[in-house]
Each structure stands twice: as structure tokens, then as C-alpha cells.
Write a protein that binds this DNA or RNA. Structure first.
Lengths: 338, 338
DNA sequence: TTGTACGCGTTATCAG
DNA sequence: CTGATAACGCGTACAA
């Protein structure tokens, strides 16, 4: 920039004014400066600017698993939205659990102007890491118990409830539930939805029907295996996220069972492949775009500071997408269920 | 940092030495400094450090579509690999085509120390944007015609060829090809593989059997529709990426056709869902992990400058994963093909 | 072993 | 409108 100033025979201030349009500059000088910029091949140095302004125009985004379409679809919305507002996004995925705190530290080191975090694992270390962050933080998908930050979450119990209603209306009573980590917000909330829905329908809860799938394909596969080899086999299975739906379908197939002939299946989280194959998987879809849009909006509002201090909370609703993986319970299954 | 120095009654230099371990510091003073850091709640400011050192310890990663498992699986490898080496990654996805140059500018503005780019769209603007980048650049998936940068790519013709061999060995002769954008490196190379394989087998090439799917679900759906309603319907379909495999399967289904009964299908790019449903999709799998590992390695080697100037080129091999979506050609189909 | 002082490239504050 | 000049927070010769 100094070089440009020299080349154009103006002060360093004038160059800055031209580059940033921060002050009116006389036509002649402006042209000279622009020519000099071209000649020198000057490119602005955002680092120096950030040091001065205190803003990096960068947002940190931390998601649990970049391999999960739920998160990537969300990032695919967040990134352009923030970009439109002039922000770049620095993405971290928690390849290994417990990485989260480290990533937060890394991002705050780099002075990001804001954070969008999808909490994973235990609360305590996360709370600790978030303490002392002085930039806006928005939580997505999961939230923390003290509701200190803006958050956008799903009404998980209602979403699961909808799926259960559907299954119950089809006559299913023994419904296996493949759960995520129970110590997470979503893991907990989805099991709750399951239990509540059954209780409301007067169906007794059999704890053998709730098996831990830990959000992952493999664990869910094993959970489904356990469920499907129970003395009283469930007539329907619910997988509490998309990874686990895969594991579930594999287990059904490996047992030589037919879906929906022998067992109905509903997945949580919709994804493009769900309706490409046979059966077309019935799912509870999360409004992924809304997640991204709302999270971006909340954060940008905080960034422009045109908003009250109190943490806000957006609750989104899931949507049941009925396809072909569920079927009314058969007389035979009914008999066996006795 | 100045505050810490004051609190600990030492010079600013000593604090820096303690924080970075850059010079030996007496036990007593070190403890004082550490205590002061705790007390003040000092956190290092990477921006200022970067301004001084000229390194941001940040790598820019640009991929075409973060919604595509191929890219995300790759990012899931790249991000931890670079993180282990102390680098953060700034991720940009080209939501809109032609965004690429802008993203490159954004990243160079922010003084990233290196770039991993998966080129998209036309070459010219990209070449232009990359010109004048003075940090190491590694290209993945696709490369540029002038081979100016390190690149890791697939042997696309061979990979497609393997799939064709398989189809030919099953007796298929009329094989529909659903192609990506023909003006991309991969789009071009995969069609080439198709044509070469057929030519080598003495099968004449029917241009009606090559339909543009543009890498997307919708376009591929329509392409598959065109293919499957041809007077002489192809007995097998090949979709040149995972998105297009979805569109293809949907078209097969919507036409009331059975896969593999009526038509065999092979997809390009493997993904977890491919083997969860019926049919289990036979695919040509790209070694996604290797893509990520090699790209990270090439970049890190350039970063530590322990490597010759000449651009390097890693060529990876695809792997055919035979599952249940292909079947030997039937006599009936054979008759119709005449 | 420790302190001093300068500079990295910008922006912002004051004068002019 | 324009030009000097002082920070921004840190690393690092150089001096002590």
C-alpha cells in the first residue's frame, strides 16, 4: 500500500480511501491510484486490516460430523448466507469427540467474529470452552441446559411423536427404537418423544425395545439385530438419525427379512437417497434449510447488534414424509405379538 | 500481553517467550507469567501474530458441492490431517457456479498459507484467479490443462473402463451413459473411458446412448428417462457420479421398471446408502480417503518446502464394487437389442 | 537470561 | 478533500 502511494505520488491515506471508499477522493488522484494498484499488483491484506479494526469478517462453524447430510445441507445454506453478508466461514468438524473445546479455542485464537456450534458430547467441557467467548454464539440442532446462547432446535418430541402416531395408526404396538447417545440433547429428546407417544396411546413401554445405536451405522446395525432377534420381534423400527437408518436397513436385509413386509421402518432425517431405492424410506424430515437460515439470521442480527441481549430460541418442526417402508400390521404379526 | 507483563512485573518479551517457548525463561519468572496469564485471562491474538510472521496457519479449501459425499468424505480427511499439522481450514463451497474466482480472492485476501481446490466449471476464469497466487496450491479431483499445480486425480478412463468390462462380461451391449458436464476434466475423462472401453470391445458407439446429466439429480433423471424410452432401450445404465445415480434410480422406478430385472445400473462414487437398500447399487468407488490424504500430504510438503519445484501429479485408481444392481443380459433383451 | 525498541500493513484521528 | 502520524498486538534483532 505504501508502494502504491509512492507510485501514485499520493499519501498512504488516499490509497486507503480509494480502496475502501471510506472518504471522497478527487477524480484525478483516484485514477492515478487505481492505475498504480494495477501496476503494482496490490492486493489488500485482510490480516493487517483485522488487526486494526478488530474484526476478521470470519465466522467459525463447528459441526459434529461433516459426513452427515444433515450437517452438510445446513452448512450449504449457512456458508452462502454468511458470504452474502461479507463473512467467510471457517469450518471445523469433530472428527474425534472431545475435539470440540480445542476447535473453539482455535477459532477464538483466530479472532472469528462469531460462532455457530452444533454441540456434541458432554456439556461440561463445552460450557467451559464457551465461557469467556465474547463474540456472538449460536447453537444449532442441540442446545445447552442453561440456555445462555441463541439456539435453533427441532421440536424433537413432536417430530418423533408424529412418526409414532403414524405407526400406531397402522396398528403397530411393538415398536423398536434405535437411539442416539442418551447424554445428548437430541438423543434424550427423541427417546422422550417415543415414550410419550406410546404412553399417550396407552401402550406399555418395554425397555428391551429401546436399543442404543449411538448415532452410528455399525452400532445401529447391532442394535437392530438385537431388536429383530427378540423373542417377540417388534413389527416396526424407528431409527433416530440417518446414519442409524442405514444400519437398520442393513440389519433387516442381513436377517433375510423384508421391509416393509416383515418389518416397517421409519428413519429420522431425510436425505436424497431415501426415495431412490426400494423401499423408499419413510422419514421424519428436519427442515434443514430453515436450520441454516435461522442460524445465519440470528448470528447476523447479533453481529449488527440490532437486537436485545436476551438469548433467543427458535423451535422448528419436523415433517413426516410417508413413503413405502411402512405397512399396516398383519394378522400373523398381531398373533405373534401376543 | 502488555497487561500480563505488567501484572507479572516482567517485560513483554518474557511473556512472549513463555507463550511461545521461543527462549528459555527462568523458573520463577515463568511461574509468575503463567499465573498472570491465568489471572488476566490472556488469550493469544493470532491476527497480530500473523501480521508479524506472515503466516496465518490457515488453509483454504474450495470444493464444488459440499452436499456431495465425495467431497465431504474428502474434507473429513483433509481437515483433521491439516489440523494435526497445526493448520485450520477455511472451507468454501461453490453454491453458485462462477463463484470460484471470488472465493479464491477471498481466501488470498485473508492470507491463507495454502489452497486445496477442486476446480469447477470453465478453466479460463479459474486460471486467471489462480495466477498471482504465491502460496502452494493443490488441485483435487480435477486438474487444469497446463499442469501448473500439484494435483491428485483419478484414472477416470480406467475406472469407467472397469465398470464397462463388467457390464460387457455380463453380455450388455447397449449401455446408456449419463454424463456430467462435458467441459469439465472429469466429465470429459469419464465419457472417454466409456467410448474407449466399447471401442476396444468392438461395440459401435451410439451417440443417442450418451445423455447429459450435468452431475445433478434432476438432469440425470431426465437423461435416464430419455435413455429408457429409446426405441431400442439400453439394457444397462451407467451414471457418472453419485447424484446422477440417484436420478437414474428414480427414473427406473418411475417408469415401472425393475433394477436389475429390466435394466442394470452402475453408479460412479460409492456412498454408505448404496448398499443399504434394494437393489444394492454396484458402483465404481473412488479412493476418497486417499484423495484427502494425498492432497494434504502434497500441500504440507510444499508448506515445509522440502520438495522440488516441479508440479507433481498423483493418479489414483478406482475400484469396482459389485453388488446386486447388475444382472446378465436376458435372451429377451438380447432379442430386442437386435 | 532478560529488556528495549522497531516494524508488520492497515485504519483512524487530527490537522491543514 | 488530503496528508502526517499514532495505534492495533505481537515477534525479534540487538543490547544489556
Amino acid at each position: 500500500m505504501a508502494a502504491v502511494a509512492a507510485e501514485a505520488n499520493v499519501s498512504i491515506f488516499t490509497v486507503s480511501a480509494v480502496v475502501n471508499g471510506t472518504a471522497p477522493v478527487g477524480e484525478a488522484r483516484r485514477l492515478r491510484v487505481e492505475a498504480a494498484i494495477k501496476a503494482i499488483g496490490y492486493k489488500r491484506n485482510s490480516v493487517a486490516r483485522s488487526l486494526k479494526t478488530g474484526r476478521t469478517m470470519t465466522i467459525g462453524v463447528i459441526v459434529g460430523d461433516i459426513t452427515n447430510p444433515f450437517y452438510t445441507d445446513m452448512v450449504a445454506v449457512i456458508q452462502p448466507a454468511l458470504h452474502r453478508a461479507g463473512y467467510a466461514v471457517m469450518l471445523c468438524c469433530n472428527d474425534v469427540m472431545q475435539m470440540q473445546a480445542e476447535h473453539i479455542a482455535l477459532l477464538r485464537d483466530r479472532m472469528v467474529d462469531g460462532l455457530i456450534v452444533s454441540p456434541v458430547g458432554e456439556e461440561a467441557p463445552l460450557q467451559q470452552a464457551l465461557r469467556g467467548i465474547e463474540v456472538p454464539v449460536v447453537l444449532v440442532d442441540r442446545t445447552l441446559s442453561d440456555h445462555q446462547f441463541d439456539a435453533v432446535v427441532l421440536d424433537n418430541p413432536a417430530a418423533v411423536g408424529e412418526a409414532m402416531q403414524y405407526l400406531l395408526s397402522l396398528g403397530h404396538r411393538r415398536i423398536g427404537f434405535i437411539s442416539g447417545e442418551p447424554d445428548t440433547y437430541t438423543g434424550h429428546a427423541r427417546v422422550d418423544g417415543y415414550k410419550d407417544a406410546l404412553a399417550n396411546a396407552g401402550v406399555p413401554i418395554d425397555n428391551d425395545l429401546i436399543q442404543l445405536g449411538g448415532w452410528r451405522v455399525e452400532a445401529a446395525y447391532n442394535a437392530a439385530l438385537r431388536l429383530l432377534t427378540l423373542p417377540h420381534r417388534p413389527t416396526a423400527l424407528f431409527a433416530a438419525n440417518n446414519h442409524m437408518a442405514i444400519g437398520t436397513m442393513k440389519a433387516v436385509r442381513d436377517l433375510g427379512l423384508n421391509c416393509p413386509g416383515d418389518v416397517s421402518v421409519i428413519g429420522f432425517d431425510d436425505f436424497p437417497w431415501a426415495e431412490a431405492f426400494t423401499p423408499q424410506l419413510t422419514t421424519v424430515a428436519q427442515p434443514v434449510r430453515s436450520f441454516g437460515e435461522e442460524a445465519s439470521r440470528l448470528l447476523l442480527e447479533r453481529l449488527t447488534a440490532k437486537v436485545a441481549k436476551a438469548p433467543r430460541r427458535i423451535v422448528l418442526r419436523g415433517e413426516l414424509r410417508v413413503r413405502t417402508s411402512c405397512r399396516p400390521i398383519t394378522a400373523a404379526a398381531l398373533a405373534q405379538a401376543r
